Simulated assay, not measured.
Amino acid sequence: MLVKWIRCTAVDRRGFERGQRKWAGLLGEPGFRGQGGGWSRERPDVAHVFAFWENRVFYDSFMARGHEQLAAAQSGTYKDAQVKLFEYRFDVKTGFEPVFTDVDVVRVAHSRVHEDRVEHFSLMQRQVWNPAMAGSPGMVRGAFGEAPGHEFLVLSMWQSSAERGKYRPNSVERLSLRAGIEEDVAALAGDVVQLEPSWTV
């Protein structure tokens, strides 16, 4: 599965939201698995969108055919768009599906990992972070993806920000030490996204 992460800054928030709803046109596209997104909790003008495709072939086919027509509805409503593609590697918790209807919040963590620490980083994700998140009340599902250049994406979906709040901050500090994250990670960025139900496809 291919995971697409888009982050941008809205300059016309209402126009952007109107355009975002037009992406319902993705339904029925061969290989399309689901899409959702919303606004950053920390920077209210920053939007995140997460799209899931069966594989790169289906995605490339859509980009060559139908993408421009759908994207035109949002032209001029945003700036600083950053788009990254990740190959899905494994679940965070079990039974990941690209479904957004039963969650309110997505936590996104983007890491660039030192080349010689990639295996260790992935192992710690499985052995330390995944069990901790999977055992947290309100954590519904998640996915771990990898991109060229030793970049990784961890998406975790939560029932509510209140539930996610119970997972912070002491446990994260303790888990970071256990996982040796400082030795593994060259750069780490993250955000908490309040999902907009009308963006879900």
Rank of each mutant, 00 (worst) to 15 (best):
S160C: 00
A71E: 13
R7P: 09
G145A: 15
G180T: 05
R112K: 02
P98I: 00
R164Q: 07
V92H: 05
A47R: 00
A24M: 09
R21V: 11
Q20I: 01
M63I: 10
F96H: 06
Y78V: 03
F86H: 15
A10R: 08
R89V: 14
I181V: 11
L70T: 09
Y88S: 10
V92E: 03
Q194H: 06
A47K: 01
I181Y: 07
S176R: 13
A109E: 03
V99N: 02
R41Q: 10
G36N: 02
R112A: 01
Y167R: 06
R14G: 11
A132S: 09
E183L: 05
L26P: 09
A132R: 09
L195W: 00
P30A: 07
F50N: 03
A147S: 12
E196F: 01
E119Y: 06
A51I: 02
I181D: 09
G38K: 01
F121E: 06
I181G: 08
R89E: 12
S160G: 04
A132K: 02
W129V: 05
R33F: 04
I181C: 03
W129T: 06
Q159E: 15
S40T: 06
W129C: 04
G25K: 10
L2R: 15
E68A: 15
V193R: 01
H48V: 00
P169E: 12
H150Y: 12
H150D: 10
V106Q: 14
W199K: 08
G19S: 00
L175Q: 08
G19I: 00
L123M: 15
H114N: 00
R141I: 04
V106H: 10
H48E: 08
F90L: 10
G135K: 03
E29A: 11
W199Q: 09
G66L: 13
D184P: 05
A72N: 11
V11I: 14
G190S: 03
P137V: 12
H120Y: 07
G25A: 15
G190F: 03
